[in-house]
Nucleic acid binder design. Sequence first.
DNA 1: GTGGTGACTACTT
DNA 2: AAAGTAGCCACCA
Length: 108
Amino acid sequence: MAKESIYDLIFDIARHIPKGRVTSYGAIAKCIGTGASARLVGWAMHLAGNYPDVPAHRVVNSKGLLTGKHHFGGDRMEKLLKKEGIKVKNDQVQQFETVFWDPATLGL
DNA sequence: GTGGTGACTACTT
DNA sequence: AAAGTAGCCACCA
């Protein structure tokens, strides 16, 4: 049985992000219940490095900006997003509202 | 047990 | 409108 820490929840949500879609830290934060601590989500993504199943590259900030791409290893995040079919320009997701995926879609 | 940090968000000036 | 500050929670040393 998993401890189901808040990170596990975040990872679980991130893992359920459909291909070609992205989500924001605040959306996940709210979904897990923290709501006010979007920072934890960002931190969780840091730990996500240990979780290859967690597409942290699909998680961006509220503006659709690839804030964490620097931690991914340069343009790796942008490249991955483009590979997924997401248009990224200047570290910003194009059609962000179109590719935006809400964790509530899971059927919360 | 305490202190510092972190890939954010929202409000205020 | 833009810029700055404050708030928040959990992990690591």
